[in-house]
Design a protein around this nucleic acid. Structure first.
Lengths: 120, 120
DNA sequence: CATATAATTGCATAATGGCACAAATATACA
DNA sequence: TGTATATTTGTGCCATTATGCAATTATATG
C-alpha cells in the first residue's frame, strides 16, 4: 500500500486533520493571546486581552476574530464591550480526537501486515 | 486576575502551546502529505509521498524537511533514497498533553473562584 | 447634545510563505 | 567512466498575512 493509495482510504482522520485550525494556532502573537486567555480561565474583554501583547489594539481585535472563526473562541457583546471566551471543551476535544485517530493508524508489531490503511 | 497577570503564571501549557508545531500543520499541502503518511503506516520515500500531491517534487521535499524539523517526521537515508516516518507517539502525545493542559485550566463550577491561573 | 471609551475597519507597508522551474548534488549501475 | 535515478538547493514570482496608524462606528456618561 503506497501513501497515494492510502489517501483514498477515508476515515475520521481526514476531518480531524484540519489545516485551518492549525493555521489559526500557528502564529506566535495569537498563541500568546490564547495562552493568556486559557490560563486566565474567564471571559475577557478585548481591552484586557490586548494588555498581554505589545502589538497594536487593532491587531489584537483581528486576531481574536480569527480565533473565533476558527472555533477556538466564543464571543459576546455587552454594551460597548466585546468579550471572548475560550471554548475549552471544543478545543481539547479536537486535539484529543486527532491524537486518537493518529494512534489508530500507528502500526504495531501485533498488527504488522495484518491490516492496511489505519488498521482497516 | 487579568489575562496579563495570568501570563506570568508559568505552567506546562507554555511549552505545549508551540506555534512552530502548529505552523507546520497549518498548510493544506503539508497536511495532505502527512495524512497520507499517517494512513499508510509505514516508512515512505520522498518519491512515493510526492505521488500524493500535484505539486512539484521539490515542494514536497521541502515540506517533508519542514515536518521533520518540527519533530513530526523522522528521516533515514539509504543510498540515494530518503525515507520519512511519522513519529506517531511523539505527535499524538504532544496533542494529548496539550489537550490535558487546556482541560486543567478550564474553570468548573466546583472550582469557581477557588483557584486562579490553571487552578493554582 | 457633547464627549469619552471600546472596538472595528480601511489602508499602506513589510514580511512571510508556497510554488514552479532549473540547476546542482549524490548515489547506483552498466 | 558515463548515464540514469533520487533528492536537494537556488531563484524569482505571486498570494497571503501580520502590523501600525488613522478614521469610523457604537455605546455609555456627563
Amino acid at each position: 500500500m503506497t501513501p497515494r493509495q492510502a489517501a483514498a482510504c477515508c476515515g475520521p482522520l481526514d476531518d480531524l486533520l484540519d489545516p485551518a485550525l492549525f493555521k489559526a494556532l500557528g502564529d506566535p502573537t495569537r498563541i500568546r493571546l490564547l495562552g493568556c486567555m486559557i490560563k486566565c480561565g474567564r471571559t475577557c474583554s478585548v481591552s484586557e486581552i490586548a494588555e498581554c501583547c505589545v502589538v497594536d489594539f487593532s491587531v489584537v481585535s483581528r486576531h481574536l476574530r480569527l480565533l473565533e472563526r476558527a472555533g477556538i473562541l466564543g464571543s459576546t457583546k455587552s454594551g460597548r464591550n466585546v468579550s471572548y471566551t475560550v471554548k475549552y471543551s471544543h478545543l481539547s476535544m479536537a486535539l484529543r480526537s486527532l491524537a486518537g485517530a493518529i494512534e489508530q493508524c500507528r502500526p504495531s508489531e501485533a498488527r504488522a501486515g495484518k491490516g492496511d490503511c489505519c488498521g482497516r
